[in-house]
Amino acid sequence: MSKVHVTTTVNGDAVEFLADPRETLLDCLRDHVGLTGTKEGCGTGDCGACSVEMEGVLVCSCLVLGVEANGKRVDTIEGMSDGHDLHPLQRKFIEHAALQCGFCTPGFLVAAKALLARSPDPTEEEVRYWLAGNLCRCTGYDKIVRAVMDAAAEMRQEAA
């Protein structure tokens, strides 16, 4: 089981690690890169807690091998804010009480950010279907959907 040297860019930073080829990108981010904001809720792509963007595409990091990230750009929850400036989604999640336990929150934020990048003015239905792969057991989704819609509105206003 020889390990593979992986070179990647995580949140804009050059990162290198040695990965057992069986390890997922999620394992590598958490155990080798030290970024534990990305969570494992299922390990089977059913809960979305491990959502990250790879090359700008939203994926479950539990369904990507660490070795597949070689040469790729990966963006995680830890890269979402600009220093102390929170992303509007992060602010709106706090403001709308869109989190209770907070465990699913990083995955929701990363997924919602990907949605707003391609659809700045989503309908409620669009938000709900886009986020269907992110499970939240605490909130019943109501406040999450509101927070995403409100963040979208604010971002549209800023862009205008």
Binding site: T36, G37, I77, M80, Q90, F93, I94, G102, T105, P106
Partner: peptide, 8 residues
């Protein structure tokens, strides 16, 4: 605890 929970 909101800030810690939205930043990972």
């Amino acid at each position: 605890d909101g800030l810690d929970k939205v930043t990972g």
